[in-house]
């Protein structure tokens, strides 16, 4: 979503992005004239008249589980966004009985919070697990 019109979105997709992504952009490219939606989400820069690089993870109940906002010159890490969605999905499927510690990615151990884990995380997790 950006403040550009849907017509400009079409031109960007047809002229440039379809040369990077086969078949063009697979998701809707949304137009937010005047930054009305961006203001509600807190990512509209009034002075510049544009939206910053805000990324929101919204769960199936419509609840915001996380967000990240970057200034324009630095791009996002798509793999990290996907990893976060996978982690939120695991937590949701476990109905909150499992948590994903720092550095978790699919295949790495999760934690089961409860009285027995207090003071014992060191038995389950070490700092090497924080890195890929």
């Amino acid at each position: 979503m950006s403040v550009d019109s849907m017509f400009v979105h079409k031109m960007w997709n047809d002229q440039e992005l379809c040369r990077m992504v086969e078949g063009g952009i697979p998701f809707p490219m949304l137009s937010d004239a005047g930054g009305k939606v961006g203001k509600v989400y807190g990512v509209y820069d009034e002075e510049a008249g544009v939206e910053t690089r805000g990324r929101f993870i919204i769960d199936p109940d419509g609840v915001i589980q996380g967000y990240e906002v970057l200034t324009p010159p630095v791009g996002r890490n798509v793999a990290e966004s996907i990893r976060q969605v996978q982690a939120f999905q695991l937590v949701r499927e476990s109905k909150g009985t499992q948590a994903t510690p720092s550095g978790w990615r699919p295949g790495k151990p999760t934690l089961k919070p409860g009285p027995d884990l207090v003071g014992n995380v060191w038995k389950e997790w070490n700092t090497s697990l924080a890195f890929d």
Binding site: W12, R53, R55, P60
Partner: peptide
């Protein structure tokens, strides 16, 4: 598009400064 049409699915909502910007 209405956001609430996506209830039941995971959504990544991304804002960006503008089309044809470089990053």
């Amino acid at each position: 598009v209405k956001l609430s049409e996506y209830l039941g699915k995971w959504v990544l909502l991304c804002f960006y400064p503008g089309d044809f910007t470089f990053v």
